[in-house]
Design a protein around this nucleic acid. Structure first.
Lengths: 193, 193
DNA sequence: CGACAATACGGAGACAGTCTCCGGTTAGCA
DNA sequence: TGCTAACCGGAGACTGTCTCCGTATTGTCG
């Protein structure tokens, strides 16, 4: 469900798709604050067209990252069904989440906007992510292998935080592993202190 | 050690101090991307003066937050000496760190710039923070109560991440507590998996 | 097949923020 | 008091955001 009802006319649809494709590239190489007018130019349309399809930068980013978020949701569903060990499933998803954040420049910024300003848009993305981690966490909690004093929202946020602070590229691989281990050990601590 | 050698002339020093004071306010109420020209105007100087003292926004932010970072370093030193329980000391510092991040708008953004671009400036701030958490973590590790597969840099980053994702103000108080508990339980996990 | 409405396009331009250049001013010293 | 180095700050170039509206295109209907 894109943020704006899919345009009807053929040329509109063409431009819409083209804008997303170009924006995806631009964000990948320039980060979340790539110039919008430049994206429009690269897509061969005027700024007016871009802003009609995507009133704000957030709308565009939402569309750009929608696919990624869906991937993460599907991965959660797959793990919930296929991985018998609830904690392993949760850890695997968290790893995938953090990998996505590190790989797709701008994704964490886009996500962060949900917390900062009350972005009504991207709420779909947020819900999907919360559902993903929530499902896996609840399962682990019910199996008695995960602490019960945190919820999906907590885990989503700290995972997000981890994804933001680990350096991208191969440079941060080891750190990412260490931080995920740290988080998962924390999650698995069920002893009441 | 401010980012730029302290100006000699009396009027220069006056403007320098005034700019920091005004910037501090502006950042507090408008965030890290407050308008620099506006800050200059509010300080009663021209943009040229601001940019001569602080070539980039980072330089200014560095000066603005310098005081806060020093506070955190002192707190670490105090805890290292006064708190006999190494893990409690570490937890207390982490709590203080996250509180600072939540309270002073723009601080986490300024810190984040250290990772993103190789900001040579603010390296002092980074070093102080690393020293703070490193001292406390090492002590806990040597006492055998903290895992040894992470270092101060890891803990600093994940703490930073936590500070970024917790909503500011009283709204996030409970979440901050939960996340700190989660992290500290992770840190305290010494069993080799 | 041709013409008409509805729809979409995109350039011009207002506005805001960043940053620089340089002529004019001022502090500090002899 | 007068000189000089140091400093000030406004004008303006540049970049990016976002809007308005005349023009062009699409899809449909006679």
């Amino acid at each position: 469900m894109p943020p704006i009802a899919r345009p009807q006319r053929a040329d509109a649809r063409r431009n819409y798709d083209r804008l997303i494709a170009v924006a995806s590239e631009a964000v990948a190489e320039r980060g979340a604050d790539a110039s919008l007018d430049d994206i429009a130019k690269r897509a061969g349309v005027g700024p007016g067209t871009l802003y009609r399809h995507f009133p704000t930068r957030q709308h565009l980013l939402d569309a750009v990252f929608h696919e990624r978020i869906v991937l993460l949701r599907d991965e959660a569903a797959r793990l919930a069904e296929g991985e018998p060990d609830p904690l392993a499933a949760l850890g695997a998803w968290l790893r995938a989440f953090i990998e996505h954040l590190r790989r797709y420049r701008g994704l964490s910024d886009a996500l962060k906007a949900i917390y900062d300003k009350d972005a009504e848009l991207m709420i779909g993305a947020h819900d999907m992510l919360r559902w993903s981690v929530g499902t896996l966490l609840t399962r682990a909690q019910e199996a008695g292998v995960a602490r019960t004093d945190i919820d999906g929202s907590d885990l989503l946020r700290i995972g997000h935080g981890a994804g933001m602070v680990v350096e991208p590229g191969p440079a941060g691989d080891e750190r990412a592993k260490r931080l995920i281990r740290l988080l998962m050990d924390g999650v698995g601590t069920t002893t009441k202190a």
